[in-house]
Design a binder for these strands. Structure first.
Lengths: 179, 179
DNA sequence: GTCGACATGTAAATTGTTACATGATTTA
DNA sequence: TAAATCATGTAACAATTTACATGTCGAC
């Protein structure tokens, strides 16, 4: 592993929130709408082993138990923080929006409110830029596109507009939250 | 290749709409918000070769040109039709919504209006079921979730609701379209 | 006492990423 | 004529899917 994958971060984020077994992580991916990551054992267990080798997670020592409960190490927490604070690039809006939402979802407790608002503010700006470019494209090409293609494209625009509205709501919610 | 991947279908759909070079396919993935598939040469060219080996696409014979322009074969078109008509499963809503939209985007000309409306109707039903389960979860867990997790979850609900609204609009548009 | 859920893993095959490599053609 | 874009590919590596494999534990 050169750089952790999106799945690695998702697992690390979960284990940072509360220590748990690989099986629990799998179930979290399977049952909750968390991203849309694979929950197959062939993906999760090797990923946890990778994280362990890099000392980003470790087993909790529960002497009288056979279960393997993993938790984030200090190093793992630091890596998560870096991930949270990494500047948002415009191309991530189009291809990794899910991961951006995941970043936000795990930010709790690990970085302060001001930095969370920074993240949301930056997300908002990049969304606005991207939506503008989509609308520009739509304006110039809607007549040439086949009807289904045009509709599918319009779905994209609506989706990003929904995310933008959510972003504004989230900024308000975080602003008004107790510290 | 046992079964074509999502990327394979995306390429096949593009080549079915209009014959073009591998490079053009790459640019389509790079520039348009098409799915969010990889446009790297190491993904596209091998994929086109796979499709060729299965006789789903073929080179157009342009004698006086060095360019390789690919088009969908009859067999490829049949496979696309099968893909379009495959029943929508509930788990696809959570994990492969993108692919469902792609299916709809390529349906033009290949299946008739009635079947397109079938697809949209089924999509609508599955979205309603899925949204209901998300809201149920939200109702039972919103107080225990950390604030960021709750907000991220709410983003998911809003997104699916937007898709549902789009679905209703698309049904109207297709219903009223000229045959 | 059997069934389903809990729990952890491995192996083979496939797929995709990253980086490199090459050459033609167009445009400033 | 230099730079950018068009155009096609390969090689090494990393990651994921699918399928198999095994065993425990609690409920009915």
């Amino acid at each position: 592993m050169k750089r952790p994958t999106s799945l690695d971060y998702a697992i690390l984020g979960l284990l940072n929130q509360n220590p748990q077994s690989g099986y629990r992580v799998r179930k979290a991916f399977e049952n909750t709408a968390l991203g849309n990551y694979s929950s197959s054992p062939g993906a999760i267990y090797p990923a946890i082993n990778r994280l362990q080798e890099l000392e980003l997670v470790e087993k909790t020592n529960m002497p009288n138990s056979k279960k393997m409960i993993f938790k984030s190490t200090e190093k793992g927490t630091e890596l998560l923080k870096e991930w949270f604070l990494k500047p948002i690039e415009i191309n991530e809006i189009a291809t990794e929006l899910n991961e951006l939402l995941l970043r936000f979802g795990f930010m709790d407790r690990l970085i302060d409110r001001e930095e969370q608002l920074n993240f949301l503010g930056s997300l908002k700006v990049q969304l606005e830029v991207y939506i503008k470019s989509l609308k520009e494209y739509h304006k110039n090409n809607s007549t040439t596109l086949p009807i289904n293609g045009r509709l599918a494209f319009e779905h994209g625009i609506s989706s990003y507009e929904t995310t933008l509205k959510w972003c504004q709501k989230a900024i308000k919610t975080i602003t008004n939250s107790k510290s």
